[in-house]
Write a protein that binds this DNA or RNA. Structure first.
Length: 314
DNA sequence: GTTTGTTTATCGCGCT
DNA sequence: AGCGCGATAAACAAAC
């Protein structure tokens, strides 16, 4: 309920840095990569605050994309016309916000050169890695012949095709404790039924956030037991008619020097493990998508981050 | 011309 | 105080 004489909650600046907003957008896409325009769109769709002063914040956002190593640029194929490249999260960036604040990271993520082939650190390697993952997901869809209804890309929801929830997955972000700028600490997990935050609880707790899908879903959504272990298939590139995966990655950012980042793997673990289904909103549309059998080939596919997890666990 | 991407600079804030 | 991070502005180049 808006305060008299003051802007509505939705007009207030969301308590996220541009980095976290961008990461959310990227994570929300099936391929875990988005062109700049789609990142803009994601943010504007969900955060009315960013429907104004677009020049200002979009400039800032572009600055962040270029400046921060946690974002990697993946070029389009020559036969894939369109402006700009795809942007993805660096597979090794992990949970930069594990301190619970999405305004400020514990430490800036810096790309490092490493012999650790499991977690590519060089931007070019990471780009290749991500593209391969995306291709795998596409192949899985083709192989299973899974029929999916046409949908408007990620705007129908977030991470609908992926059961793995990267720390930046919006479900994870909105589900964990965090501090609002005023200093009040609260959690969206607090009052809930069966471990899930309720719709109106979400919408009142996160008035600045706006998602027709997440907030307005009325259809009952089941959470099959096997759902969480199922890696879904990408939808956007197939259903959005036109946009397909970029192809050959090329190094774009200069590669800084580095040290092995084995420790990064360990630092990811707690977050990954905490990304249990309980932390997901039942309204998340991805749960409706993941109807396929847990035994589908898609199971063998993992996101870059989940690969890290399995590697780290073993 | 517009969009996208890079780079530099400055400022504020929080932490140590 | 010094440092690191985030936000913002601005200039510039390249691609579309």
């Amino acid at each position: 309920m808006p305060r008299p004489g003051r802007n509505t909650y939705s007009d207030q600046k969301p308590p996220y840095s541009y980095i976290s907003l961008t990461a959310m957008a990227i994570q929300s896409s099936p391929e875990k990569m988005l062109p700049l325009s789609e990142i803009y769109k994601f943010i504007m769709d969900r955060f009315p605050y960013y429907r104004e002063n677009t020049q200002r914040w979009q400039n800032s956002l572009r600055h962040n994309l270029s400046f921060n190593d946690c974002f990697i640029k993946i070029p389009r194929r020559p036969d894939q016309p369109g402006k700009g490249s795809f942007w993805a999260l660096h597979p090794s960036c992990g949970d930069m916000f594990e301190n619970g604040s999405f305004l400020r990271r514990r430490k800036r993520f810096k790309v490092t050169i490493t012999s650790d082939h499991l977690a590519p650190s060089k931007p070019a390697d990471a780009a290749l890695y991500l593209q391969q993952q995306a291709k795998l997901r596409l192949s899985a869809l083709a192989a299973t012949g899974t029929h999916l209804p046409p949908m408007n890309g990620y705007n129908l929801g977030v991470s609908q095709s992926s059961s793995f929830k990267h720390p930046f997955a919006i479900e994870n972000i909105i589900a964990r404790d965090y501090k609002i700028p005023g200093g009040l600490a609260f959690t969206t997990m607090q009052p809930m039924s069966a471990g899930y935050p309720l719709h109106n609880q979400l919408s009142t707790t996160w008035p600045h956030m706006y998602s027709s899908t997440v907030m307005d879903t009325t259809a009952p959504i089941s959470m099959p037991n096997g759902e969480y272990s199922t890696y879904g298939v990408p939808l956007k590139s197939i259903c959005q008619g036109g946009q397909t995966l970029p192809a050959i990655p090329v190094p774009i950012k200069p590669t800084p020097t580095s040290v092995p980042r084995i420790s990064a793997l360990h630092s990811h673990l707690p977050t990954f493990l905490s990304s249990s289904p309980q932390s997901l909103s039942p309204t998340s549309p991805q749960t409706a998508i993941s109807q396929s059998s847990p035994a589908t080939p898609g199971n063998s596919l993992t996101s870059p981050a989940s690969v890290l997890l399995s590697v780290a666990v073993h």
